[in-house]
Design a protein around this nucleic acid. Structure first.
Lengths: 345, 345
DNA sequence: CCTGAGGATGTAACCGGTTACATTGTACCC
DNA sequence: GGGTACAATGTAACCGGTTACATCCTCAGG
C-alpha cells in the first residue's frame, strides 16, 4: 500500500552487472575510463532496472545541487509568466532545476530565514524586494551566489543585478508628451513606496521636465501603487480638488488602466483633454480605450539574463555586476498620436 | 575565492553544545525527549553558528524530500500565473517546496524520462499533456503520488485529476446564444488536436444544439488551436468561402481575440451581425471591442485543489479521484447583451 | 533496600551516491 | 626481458543527516 521501498540503487546495478559501484558511478558521470563492453552491459542493466540515481545522495556526496532558487515577492500578474519562462528556459538548457518560493504578501520573509539557500540550492535569484538587506549581507558573507532582479544592491555590496532601463525610457516618454503633444502639466503616478523601478522612472520624468525648462511641481506627483484601484481613486481625488493637468504618466500599465477608467467616468476625453501613458506594455494594454501608449519592458529577457548571470557566477565565481536591458517606446493612441493601424499586439 | 566549505554541520553544533548528534537531531525534529536546559543551549548554539540542516542529507536519511514537482507543457500565458500562485500557496502552507519543470514545446518529454520523479520529489503535478501515457503507467506502477491538472487519466488508471466544468458551461453558453440572441448557425472553434478542455466544450456545444432542435453542421466546427492568429485565419477563410454563420463560440479567449480582429477587418458588426463568445476570461477579455462574453475558469482554485489532492495522496495514500471545479458565465457585450456598466474586471 | 519504569543521552549503523587510492593487466619502448 | 605508462577496475572512506539500540540515572513502590 504505502511504500514498497523498491527503489533501485547503484549497488543493485553494480551487482546485476557484475562490477563495482565505482565503475557504475564513473560510467554514469563519464568521470573515468570504462571499457566498451562494460558500458554496454551497464546501459542494458540500467534500462532493465529503470535505475535513476537518487538526487539527494548525489547532492550530499558532491556538494552540488544543480538547483537554483527563485524568490518572488508576489507570484501572479502579467509580469510573472514571461519572467519565469526566460529563467526556466536558460536554467534547463544548463541542466539546472528551479525551486520556487513565493508569497502573496510582499516582504514575507523579511527578518526570517529564507526557504532557499546554501542548504538546498547552488544559488538564488531574488526578485525586487523579496530579500531584505540582512539577507543580502549574510549571503554575501557566505559567498553564496546571488543575483538580484529588478533591484540594485546597496552600494557597498557587489551583488550582480539585472534590471531594465527605466530612466531613459521615462525621460523619452515624458519628452514625447512635451514635444509632440505640447503637454506641460504632467502628473506622475508613483509605484508602491520604495519601489525601485518607480523611483528611476520618476527621476527620468523629472529630468525631462528640467531639460525642457518646465518647473517641477511636487503637487503633480501622486500615489498609484502600481494598482488599478489606487490609481483610480487618486485621479478621482485630483479631479475633485480641481488640480490642473493635461497628461498622466502612470508608473505602470496597471495604474494607467485605473487612470483611464477614472477619466472615462468623469467624461474627460483621452487623449484630447488629458493624455495618458503607462509603462510595461502588458498584455491588455493594446486593448484599452484608447490603446495605451507605453514602454515595453523585455521581461522574458530579464529572466534569461538573470539566469545566465547566476550560472556564470556559480561556475566562474564572477560575472558582470550590472545588466541593464533596453526598453522601447510603444506609441499607440492614448498619448495623442494618430492611429497607426495594424500595430503590434 | 571559490568554496570556503565553511558549512556548519550537525556535528559542529553537537560538539559546541557538548552533546551528541543524536540529541541535536532529536531536538530539531522534536522526535524524542530533550531536557529543557540542553534545548536552550542548543537554541543558542544554532543561532550563534547560523546552523541550517543540509536538505540533501536529511532527504537521504529519511527518504522524504518535502518537495513536489510541477510539469508544465508551456510556461507563459495568462494561465500560469494564477495556477502557480494557487499551487505555491497551498504547498508552502504545508511545508512543501515546489520544483518546476517546463518547456516551450508541448510534449518535450514524451518518450523521454522526466526531470522530476521519485528520485527528487515526493509527488508530481502534471499539467495537461506534459506526461505521456507511458509516464503515467510507469509512475502508477511505482505507486508514485501523481495528480493531473486539466486532464483526465486513461479509464483504467485511477489517477486523481483536477479540472474544470467545461461541458455544462459550454452548454449554457451555447444555449444563451440560441435562446437570448436567436442564433442558429454557431461556429465552434476547436483547440489544438487532442486538447481535452476543447473536447468537452465541443460536447457541450453539440448537446445544446441538440437540446434546442438545431441540427449539427460539421462544417461549422473549425480549427482555432487556442491561438489568435490561427483563429484569425480560420475566420477569414470561412468568410471568403461564404460560409453562413451568425455566431462564433471560440474555444478560448485567445482565439476569440483573433475572431474579433478578423471580423473587424471585414467590417462585420459584432454582435449585431455575428455574436462572439470565448472561454477562460483572460485579463484582457473585458477590454476587447466589444467586451467579450466568456466563461470564467477558476484557475487559481484549480491550482489550490490540485496541490491539496497531491498532499493528501502523499500523506494518506488516497484522495478523491476527480475534482471538477465550477465555471461561470460572464456576460458582456460581444454576445449581444446590453452594456451592464461597471462590470467586474 | 531492591527493583522496575521511564526520561535523557550516547554510539554507531545506515541512507545512496562519489572519489582517493590501490591493484591488475597489457602494450610499448629501449 | 625489464621497466614504464596507462587503461580498467575494485575497496572503502566520506558527505551530513536520522534512528535503533544501549546505557545511565532518578524516582516511586513494595
Amino acid at each position: 500500500m504505502t511504500k514498497p521501498r523498491a527503489s533501485v540503487t547503484i549497488r543493485d546495478v553494480a551487482r546485476r552487472a557484475g562490477v563495482s559501484v565505482a565503475t557504475v558511478s564513473r560510467y554514469i558521470n563519464k568521470t573515468g575510463p570504462v571499457s566498451k563492453a562494460v558500458g554496454e552491459r551497464l546501459d542494458a542493466v540500467m534500462e532493465e532496472l529503470h535505475y535513476v540515481p537518487h538526487a539527494a545522495a548525489r547532492k550530499l556526496a558532491t556538494h552540488k545541487t544543480f538547483t537554483i532558487g527563485l524568490l518572488l515577492s508576489d507570484i501572479g500578474g502579467d509580469f510573472f509568466a514571461p519572467l519565469l519562462r526566460g529563467i526556466e528556459d536558460v536554467l534547463a538548457s544548463h541542466g539546472y532545476d528551479l525551486l520556487i518560493a513565493s508569497t502573496r504578501k510582499p516582504r514575507r520573509w523579511h527578518g526570517k530565514s529564507l526557504p532557499v539557500g546554501p542548504h538546498n540550492t547552488d544559488g538564488i535569484l531574488g526578485f525586487a524586494d523579496s530579500l531584505d538587506e540582512d539577507h543580502l549581507r549574510r549571503l554575501m558573507a557566505q559567498h553564496f551566489p546571488l543575483v538580484l532582479i529588478h533591484r540594485t544592491p546597496p552600494p557597498d555590496l557587489p551583488i550582480p543585478c539585472v534590471t531594465i532601463e527605466n530612466k531613459a525610457a521615462a525621460h523619452a516618454m515624458t519628452s514625447h508628451l512635451i514635444e509632440q503633444h505640447r503637454r506641460r502639466r504632467i502628473v506622475f503616478l508613483q509605484g508602491p513606496p520604495g519601489e525601485e523601478d518607480s523611483h528611476w522612472r520618476e527621476i527620468g520624468y523629472r529630468r525631462a521636465l528640467a531639460d525642457h525648462g518646465i518647473p517641477f511641481d511636487p503637487g503633480l506627483v501622486m500615489r498609484g501603487d502600481f494598482d488599478r484601484d489606487v490609481a483610480f481613486a487618486t485621479i478621482e481625488a485630483a479631479l475633485r480638488q480641481g488640480i490642473a493637468f493635461d497628461a498622466v504618466f502612470a508608473g505602470d500599465d496597471e495604474s494607467a488602466e485605473g487612470v483611464l477608467a477614472a477619466l472615462h467616468v468623469h467624461g474627460i476625453a483621452v487623449p484630447e483633454e488629458i493624455a495618458v501613458v503607462g509603462f510595461d506594455d502588458q498584455r491588455m494594454s493594446p486593448y484599452l480605450t484608447p490603446p495605451l501608449t507605453t514602454v515595453r519592458a523585455p521581461t522574458e529577457m530579464v529572466g534569461r539574463h538573470a539566469a545566465q548571470r547566476l550560472i556564470e557566477l556559480i561556475r566562474d565565481g564572477t560575472t558582470e555586476l550590472m545588466t541593464l536591458l533596453p526598453t522601447q517606446l510603444v506609441i499607440r493612441r492614448s498619448c495623442g498620436c494618430p492611429d497607426r493601424g495594424g500595430d503590434d499586439s
